[in-house]
């Protein structure tokens, strides 16, 4: 069923446009002078508690991250330090960007049976949808490192292998969770 949207009827004054333009300009002018006053006051060391802008001056100032934000992947470990991953390829299957590739190997312990001999994530392809985390039956992959910066000068550098992904295997501490970290 189509939804009928009631269009707002404009009054004559609004349709004349000029008045609305003036009102708009009054709004922006108000912001300009208020912010300018704060900037000037701060220049002289006054009004330290006020800010003339709502932006963060990255990279000096970093924005707190939401705890659920999807950031760089990590692979978790078992208690004995081995990767928790069993190479079931659920993440590779569900990945819409085809950025994960896994090669499975035979684990000497028949109770574990299968483990990844290779686990590569091509971050150049990854779209950070988080499906891999959702799909994982073993809680082996997470995207909670809080790392947002993982640039590289080469395409190869964007491919994170098993060792790189395991390097951050410990759970980030809660107070660190909200801070951006460099790769």
């Amino acid at each position: 069923m189509a939804i009928k949207v009631e269009e707002k009827q404009l009054t004559l004054l609004e349709r004349l446009y000029v008045l609305e333009v003036v009102r708009g300009i009054a709004l922006t002018t108000g912001h300009f002078f208020r912010n300018m006053a704060v900037h000037i006051a701060r220049l002289f060391g006054l009004a330290k508690d006020k800010k003339g802008s709502t932006t963060f001056q990255y990279p000096e100032e970093r924005r707190p991250l939401a705890p659920r934000l999807r950031t760089l992947h990590r692979l978790t470990r078992r208690e004995d330090g081995a990767p928790r991953c069993v190479a079931c390829m659920m993440c590779e299957t569900v990945c819409p960007a085809h950025c994960i590739s896994i090669v499975a190997g035979e684990h000497p312990n028949p109770l574990i049976e299968k483990y990844p001999t290779r686990f590569d994530i091509d971050l150049g392809l990854c779209v950070f949808c988080g499906y891999c985390v959702e799909a994982c039956p073993e809680d082996a992959i997470r995207m909670d490192t809080g790392v947002l910066e993982f640039t590289s000068f080469s395409r190869e550098g964007m491919v994170y292998d098993l060792n790189k992904l395991l390097a951050r295997s410990e759970t980030p501490k809660p107070n660190e969770e909200s801070k951006v970290k460099t790769a």
Binding site: H31, F32, N35, M36, S53
Partner: peptide, 10 residues
Amino acid sequence: KQSAVMQDRI
């Protein structure tokens, strides 16, 4: 600069 200050930016 003017647009930035108008829009609460730097």
